[in-house]
Simulated assay, not measured.
Amino acid sequence: MGTLQIDLLGTSFSIKATEDDEYLEKLLGYYKKIIDEIQKSGMLKEKLHVSILAGIMLCDELYKEKSRKSLSQDPLAPQNSNEKAEKLTAEMIKKLDKALNLQG
Results as ranks from 00 to 15, higher is better:
residue 75 P to F: 05
residue 96 L to C: 07
residue 24 L to D: 08
residue 84 K to T: 07
residue 16 K to D: 09
residue 19 E to S: 13
residue 18 T to V: 15
residue 28 L to H: 10
residue 20 D to S: 02
residue 15 I to H: 09
residue 78 P to C: 00
residue 44 L to V: 01
residue 23 Y to L: 15
residue 92 M to W: 15
residue 10 G to I: 01
residue 41 S to L: 10
residue 82 N to C: 12
residue 38 I to G: 03
residue 14 S to A: 13
residue 2 G to H: 00
residue 20 D to L: 08
residue 25 E to P: 07
residue 89 T to Q: 13
residue 93 I to Y: 15
residue 22 E to R: 05
residue 30 Y to Q: 00
residue 24 L to T: 13
residue 30 Y to T: 12
residue 89 T to E: 06
residue 42 G to V: 03
residue 24 L to H: 11
residue 9 L to S: 01
residue 28 L to T: 03
residue 57 M to K: 07
residue 64 K to D: 06
residue 20 D to C: 04
residue 49 H to A: 01
residue 85 A to P: 08
residue 73 Q to E: 13
residue 101 N to M: 09
residue 32 K to D: 15
residue 90 A to I: 04
residue 43 M to Q: 05
residue 22 E to S: 14
residue 69 K to E: 15
residue 69 K to C: 13
residue 27 L to T: 09
residue 73 Q to L: 08
residue 29 G to V: 14
residue 101 N to Y: 11
residue 29 G to M: 10
residue 28 L to I: 02
residue 69 K to M: 14
residue 80 N to K: 02
residue 70 S to G: 00
residue 34 I to L: 09
residue 81 S to M: 05
residue 67 S to A: 04
residue 44 L to S: 01
residue 21 D to S: 03
residue 82 N to I: 14
residue 55 G to C: 11
residue 4 L to Y: 14
residue 90 A to Y: 14
residue 98 K to N: 11
residue 26 K to Q: 10
residue 65 E to S: 10
residue 59 C to Y: 15
residue 85 A to K: 06
residue 18 T to H: 07
residue 81 S to E: 11
residue 66 K to S: 03
residue 52 I to M: 10
residue 101 N to V: 02
residue 18 T to A: 09
residue 77 A to M: 07
residue 83 E to K: 06
residue 12 S to Q: 03
residue 38 I to S: 02
residue 101 N to E: 15
residue 76 L to Q: 08
residue 98 K to P: 06
residue 20 D to H: 03
residue 23 Y to M: 05
residue 91 E to Q: 07
residue 46 E to F: 12
residue 32 K to W: 14
residue 35 I to M: 01
residue 22 E to P: 08
residue 41 S to H: 06
residue 53 L to R: 07
